[in-house]
Design a protein around this nucleic acid. Sequence first.
DNA 1: CAGGTTTCGTATCGATCGATATGGAAGATT
DNA 2: AATCTTCCATATCGATCGATACGAAACCTG
Lengths: 189, 189
Amino acid sequence: MHLFWEHGYEATSLAMLREAMGLTPPQIYNAFTDKETLFRKALTRYHETEIGFALEALSAPVPTREAIRRLLLSAAEAYSRPGKPGGCLFVSGALAASPQAQAIADELKAYRKASEAAIAERLAKGSAMGDLPEGPSVEGLAKYIAGVMNGMSIQARDGASAEELRIMAQTALAALPADRQNRGASSKE
Amino acid sequence: MHLFWEHGYEATSLAMLREAMGLTPPQIYNAFTDKETLFRKALTRYHETEIGFALEALSAPVPTREAIRRLLLSAAEAYSRPGKPGGCLFVSGALAASPQAQAIADELKAYRKASEAAIAERLAKGSAMGDLPEGPSVEGLAKYIAGVMNGMSIQARDGASAEELRIMAQTALAALPADRQNRGASSKE
DNA sequence: CAGGTTTCGTATCGATCGATATGGAAGATT
DNA sequence: AATCTTCCATATCGATCGATACGAAACCTG
């Protein structure tokens, strides 16, 4: 998973995976069928073990703005963990791909779209509760937040520290209109 | 250039380049030495022909916030031009790379850092002119803006329309404190 | 028009990719 | 203990990568 995270799908060779896992080629193919299946296994594992912060932040019983704040700040941490590759696997796994790997690129794109949809869903809930007063539409706001997280992923890959990512998250949050209710209650910006 | 832009450095094969340019392998190597040199030529050409909007926006004689507004909005256009690959070559060229292509990945990272530095320079100028009142530091703000542009690049690659990118740009701009002087003079948000 | 030179496309190079066939060691059964 | 079966690491597969050697066609020179 770390190798795919660091180098992306296509640039990670079987030889690298073999050395990292300490397995022989037949062992790999017996266990994972082929490289594509192995990558998909890594994707689901990544989703389960490294991306929990997103669901946690979006489902917390807090005002909408606070939920987004938690989402962005925990992303800042997750994208700059020591000992882990920088950024998000869903972004660096295959932003650009050869025609043969288009299926993989499409799958990663679907993961990114799903993240944006989850954000939009949370925003829609907030909007229905009168928690998200004026400003851009839910879809536009979700695209902005998802986009900022993608941007944080690239900044992390370029060496941004956790503190720098936190600042970026805080700055991004300033674009969101303040809550009408619970204003400043649980936020300590 | 379009092939590298669409598929990235490593995933673009000599066979694709050969077909696109209508050249035979020796012609390519006579003209460009090797694949790496060809890619660097494409990079400089991209910088000259597709990224002019950035320098134009940052050097325009307008208030700081208006300059950033123009930067983000023109990026929204540039990243979603019909007939061109989505996003920015500096991002999709090689976000993740194999160890052999690390030099290319580092060079692209340097381009991204230079963009951020250019933004920081413009912000510093504005700050010195009292044009950028309170809020985060110049470096933090520059990292935010550059990060948002990187995020827009990914959203564009995922199929976001020019209008959706414009909305994202406008939303991102809301995070910037309003100018103390010339407030709303040249901005039509 | 003949000879010599240059140019350029084809065919192929060694290396590496993802994936697999094969020979030999380990363990089970009679 | 001898034989047979099972399992697994090495060696290798065809395909493709980036890059180049070589032979034929074109062109200039005498």
